[in-house]
């Protein structure tokens, strides 16, 4: 296994460099580029990021492991992140989660066998005013109920 940034991403990195007083600041932007490129962060990427940022590979690994949105393993095509924080809980997220679990046959942290869905229970998505809420990949779905949830899942390509 090896990792290399795509030519397109190398171009982005050059632009990013001029935005910060030190290449060290590029850790998170580069981790995001890797995750967008590969769908997750393979261990081989630590060296590539370390070289650009001038951190050690361990520094990159330490940072990557700190941020919960960064993954070391691929997720399903549709990564469902259902909010479990207080306002969503008061508005019924537990029922939604139960519904989702039954419908997809997997628990939080698992991926369906066909690789289509991953469920994750996450902390506050900032949708308290439109609770309960979830994200599928980066897209927000709010003011949910089980009916709405069914429709959303059915309409996914």
């Amino acid at each position: 296994m090896s990792f290399a940034f795509s030519p397109e991403n190398l171009g982005k990195i050059e632009k990013l460099r001029s935005r910060y007083p030190s290449p060290k600041a590029l850790t998170l932007p580069l981790l995001w580029l890797v995750q967008e490129q590969e769908g997750y962060i393979p261990g081989e990427a630590f060296d590539a990021i370390a070289e650009i940022t001038t951190w050690s590979p361990m520094d990159i690994y330490k940072s990557a492991s700190f941020y919960t949105m960064l993954r070391f393993e691929p997720a399903g095509k549709y990564h469902i992140k259902i909010c479990r924080s207080l306002s969503c809980t008061l508005c019924g997220q537990a029922m939604l989660y139960r519904h989702l679990r039954e419908k997809l046959g997997i628990k939080a942290g698992e991926t369906t066998a066909d690789g289509r869905f991953t469920i994750e229970r996450v902390e506050c998505l900032g949708s308290c005013g439109t609770a309960p809420a979830m994200q599928i990949n980066d897209i927000y779905y709010e003011e949910l109920n089980t009916l709405k949830l069914d429709t959303i899942l059915e309409n996914l390509p």
Binding site: S22, K24, L26, L28, T68
Partner: peptide
């Protein structure tokens, strides 16, 4: 600058650490 999922980065010095490429 996009964060990576960490509530504590809302604390200003943690935010700056993160903005410097650290935990």
């Amino acid at each position: 600058h996009r964060g990576g999922g960490a509530y504590i980065c809302g604390e200003k010095s943690a935010l700056l650490e993160s903005l410097e490429g650290k935990r």
